[in-house]
């Protein structure tokens, strides 16, 4: 059993959902990490959940990126700890400079909550290790600022480095304009840092982790990191 930390900002609103999936669906240990916390000692992985952090009246994630807990998250990531930012968590990681790029308001200038398909582009992360490139997952999105942007040169760099983790696609896995729900450049739905241990994505895997809710595909990301952590633990013990 692994020990996950789910960070709670005052207006996080998917924190309980992430705790539910990790604890109840996947049987993991979960610590609820308050936004004022300064240490993440004893955790195997950290999840920054969706929501509105401190209200996000300013740019989404801009205030949260400067919260006390984020220094601890940064330190945790620097030593290779896996960090997953979902929706608002992704926005916070971008604002904190832990992932490349930025978020604009959705091209439709409205909040959008709907089921989408995404294609796995990189398996070089703990969260997609057990998936295969080109695999299509069904998960919901729910955001007003999910229009991923990176200027041309940065975009080329991260594409060449394989840092795009997920792209919006149709049910058949085709990446096209019609499958892009928010205007993201080149349909980017998720990215990773160069080391691969920090991943941000706009879709909500925790809302797609039980079949009764319409899809179980999101669970694969959590199962992947659990397996990755188990492997790491075994190899450490072996060494």
């Amino acid at each position: 059993m692994m020990r996950f930390g789910v960070v709670i900002f005052p207006a996080s609103n998917c924190d309980r959902d992430c705790v539910h999936v990790l604890r109840t669906v996947l049987g993991q240990e979960v610590e609820e990490v308050w936004h004022e916390e300064q240490s993440l000692d004893g955790l195997d992985a950290v999840v920054l959940p969706g929501g509105f952090a401190y209200g996000d009246y300013l740019r989404a994630g801009a205030v949260a990126a400067r919260a006390p807990v984020m220094a601890a998250v940064r330190a945790f990531a620097q030593v290779g700890g896996p960090v997953l930012g979902i929706c608002n968590g992704f926005q916070i990681l971008l604002e904190a400079g832990m992932l490349p790029g930025a978020m604009l308001r959705n091209a439709v200038l409205r909040f959008r909550c709907t089921m989408v398909h995404v294609r796995v582009e990189s398996t070089q992360t703990p969260f997609t290790r057990t998936l295969r490139e080109g695999q299509v997952l069904q998960m919901p999105i729910a955001h007003g600022e999910g229009n991923y942007f990176a200027p041309g040169s940065l975009l080329s760099t991260i594409e060449e480095a394989g840092q795009i983790v997920l792209r919006y696609c149709d049910a058949g896995g085709r990446v096209n304009h019609g499958a892009n729900p928010n205007g993201s450049v080149r349909n980017v739905a998720g990215v990773r840092n160069p080391a691969g241990n920090v991943v941000g994505l706009m879709p909500h895997p925790e809302r797609a982790s039980e079949d009764v809710l319409g899809s179980g595909d999101g669970r694969l990301l959590f199962e992947s990191v659990i397996m990755w952590l188990e492997t790491r633990k075994r190899s450490l013990v072996g060494a």
Binding site: N13, G50, R110, F111, C113, A142, H204, R207, L213
Partner: peptide, 15 residues
């Protein structure tokens, strides 16, 4: 309905 988050709290079975 797409402007409303209708799935948060992971309870929504019939959207």
């Amino acid at each position: 309905f797409e402007q409303y988050d209708h799935m948060v709290q992971v309870r929504t079975v019939v959207a």
